[in-house]
Simulated assay, not measured.
Amino acid sequence: MTVAARAARSTAWSRPPFRFLLGAEAVTLSGSAVSTVALPALAVLELRASTTEVAVLAFLGQLPNAVALWAGALSDRHPKRPQLIASDLAAAAALVTIPAAALAGVLTVGQLCAVAVVLGAAKVVHDAAAISLLPALVGPDQLHDANSKIGAASSVADSAGTNAGALLVGAVGPARSVLVDAVSFLISAVLIWRMRVPETATAPRARTGLARDIVDGVRYVARQPTIRTVIAALSTLSFGLAVMNTYWAYYLLVPA
């Protein structure tokens, strides 16, 4: 066997379960990017939402992030694949209600807010489970390669999904565009279901309260300078983006 062949076999791509996870992450991120464009456009252009309603919609979409620590502790206690599949199906079901309600002429900003909460919660659970599952899919020496591939795929999928979302909103309207995101979650659920990976049972010592698990996790992060710095930077970036996303749709879409 040549050196090149051995190197190819040592990459994360050589693991079929990882390929399923990578495909699932890419397709859901592409679909979610479409909804990022479609939901604000739907609220502003078709429901004539006020600035306050747009702000509430953006706030509720970010609100589930407050339970991210709980989701992380939950993913450590229970099998990850069922959590991934359940979160994908919940998100798809919530999204389908939007075009159905729009077709019936009963869609409201309140319904958009409810869907935003479900989507946010599903994303938190999905992300926590995916991160926790990754070490079971690849070897320790492949984690860096696996994370880099997921990061690259995420960037491409987000950019492509946003551009596609803008085109779809203009072509078929924001309500119908949301169906693309619903389909993406269904595809992700199928890919995760086809994944075959053994998941070890939770260690007995970990059967403490969720609060204790969360506190232990926070303490661990606080003691790691590199992780602590990365989380602080990402938190600052996320805060800034959340503030920007609150009103950008309203001021970009509403004629002066």
Results as ranks from 00 to 15, higher is better:
Arg6Gly: 04
Trp13Tyr: 04
Arg19Trp: 01
Arg19Pro: 02
Leu21Met: 11
Leu22Val: 02
Gly23Gln: 02
Ala24Phe: 06
Ala24Ile: 04
Ala26Leu: 09
Ser32Lys: 01
Ala33Leu: 06
Val34Ser: 02
Val37Gly: 00
Leu42Ser: 00
Leu42Pro: 04
Ala43Val: 09
Leu47Ala: 06
Leu47Gln: 07
Glu53Pro: 03
Val54His: 03
Val54Ala: 14
Val56Pro: 09
Val56Trp: 08
Leu60Phe: 15
Leu60Cys: 15
Gln62Gly: 02
Gln62Leu: 08
Pro64Thr: 04
Pro64Ser: 01
Ala68Tyr: 14
Ser75Trp: 00
Lys80Cys: 15
Lys80Thr: 09
Ala92Leu: 02
Leu95Thr: 11
Ile98Asn: 04
Ala101Lys: 11
Leu103Thr: 05
Leu103Phe: 00
Ala104Arg: 10
Gly110His: 11
Leu112Asp: 01
Cys113Trp: 05
Cys113Ala: 14
Ala114Trp: 08
Val118Pro: 03
Leu119Gly: 08
Leu119Trp: 10
Val124Ala: 11
Val124Trp: 05
Val125Trp: 00
Asp127Leu: 12
Ala128Met: 13
Ala129Asp: 00
Ala130Asn: 07
Ser132Lys: 06
Leu134Asp: 01
Pro135Cys: 04
Leu143Glu: 04
His144Trp: 07
Asp145Ser: 12
Asn147His: 12
Lys149Cys: 07
Ser155Phe: 08
Val156Lys: 06
Ser159Gly: 15
Asn163Ala: 15
Gly165Ala: 05
Val169Tyr: 04
Val172Phe: 01
Gly173Met: 04
Arg176Phe: 09
Asp181Ala: 12
Ala182Pro: 09
Ser184Leu: 02
Phe185Met: 09
Ile187Lys: 01
Leu191Ile: 06
Arg194Gly: 01
Met195Ile: 09
Pro198Cys: 00
Glu199Ile: 09
Ala201Arg: 10
Ala201Lys: 07
Arg207Pro: 12
Thr208Val: 15
Asp216Met: 05
Gly217Gln: 05
Arg219His: 09
Val221Tyr: 03
Ile227Gly: 06
Leu237Glu: 07
Ser238Asn: 13
Met244Ala: 15
Val254Tyr: 03
